[in-house]
Simulated scan of single mutants.
Amino acid sequence: MTLHDTGYVDAVLVDGGFDFESYTEDLFQKLDIACPPSLSTALPIRRAEFLAGRAMAYAALQALGQPTAEIPIGSDRAPVWPKASAGSITHARGLCACFAIADLGWQVGVDVEAMASGHALESILSMAANEQERALIARQTVLPRDRLATLLFSAKETLFKGLYPVARRFFGFDCAELQTPPANGHLRLHLTQTLCRELSEGEPYDIRYRITADYVLTWLAVHRL
């Protein structure tokens, strides 16, 4: 498990690996984490991902000095955080991360993606990037094509998580656009349409990121509107 500098006050970003082959049902009891009834018929890998995510969330709360309270699944499938904090959980291919902040004046999002290649990379370029973004990815020299495409996908997922509590509806990849190459660990997305009264077309959102050989990790905190 690793703690990262988030760039925000009273916030932590923690990530770590988990091995599905080592998962057993009794780990819920050993880690003192409740398995929700809604997962009783889920595949073991789904329960393992849930367990890893909640374990990472508890570690984040402890790092913030917050009580380790249960984080149930809400009606919209998003985690319901304790009243004194806000957070977001993500996992992909054996890596799990949690971004949490001890301030109710913020809403947050986090996403981790395995580096895309082959068909997955082409799917991202066709599904998550518009014509202008594909042209930007092709001509920029900041990052290799596969890294920037994966980063763009992850950043849009993070933006969705961060803005969903305000928008209160699902919105697609076409609702945000990358107009300039990322720099110094920051990527800026602009809304391409008005999502609700508080989220207007053209508004920019700066998303932080870190890239390894195998993964892209993005996170965002925005003031509650």
Score class of each variant (00 low, 15 high):
93 R>P: 10
49 E>W: 01
91 H>E: 01
131 E>W: 04
225 L>G: 07
45 I>M: 03
142 V>W: 02
79 P>Y: 09
153 F>T: 05
66 Q>A: 09
204 P>I: 02
169 R>K: 14
161 K>C: 08
63 A>F: 00
83 K>T: 05
204 P>T: 03
137 I>A: 02
114 A>T: 15
124 I>M: 04
194 T>W: 06
211 I>M: 13
92 A>S: 15
82 P>Q: 08
46 R>C: 06
140 Q>V: 13
104 L>Q: 08
117 S>M: 01
30 K>D: 12
106 W>E: 05
208 R>C: 02
38 S>M: 09
179 Q>C: 14
222 V>T: 05
85 S>T: 10
6 T>H: 11
117 S>P: 03
157 E>F: 03
66 Q>C: 12
61 L>F: 00
79 P>K: 11
176 A>D: 00
22 S>A: 15
211 I>L: 14
91 H>S: 01
110 V>A: 07
198 E>W: 14
24 T>L: 11
73 I>V: 14
98 C>Y: 00
31 L>D: 08
87 G>D: 10
29 Q>L: 14
177 E>C: 12
207 I>N: 01
99 F>R: 04
78 A>P: 03
218 T>N: 04
79 P>W: 13
9 V>I: 06
68 T>W: 10
111 D>W: 02
107 Q>K: 13
120 A>C: 13
147 R>I: 09
100 A>W: 09
81 W>L: 09
86 A>W: 10
20 F>W: 02
14 V>L: 13
62 Q>M: 15
23 Y>V: 02
55 A>D: 05
204 P>L: 04
100 A>C: 07
116 A>F: 08
35 C>N: 04
76 D>H: 03
126 S>W: 13
93 R>Y: 14
41 T>W: 02
196 C>Y: 12
202 G>Y: 12
24 T>Y: 02
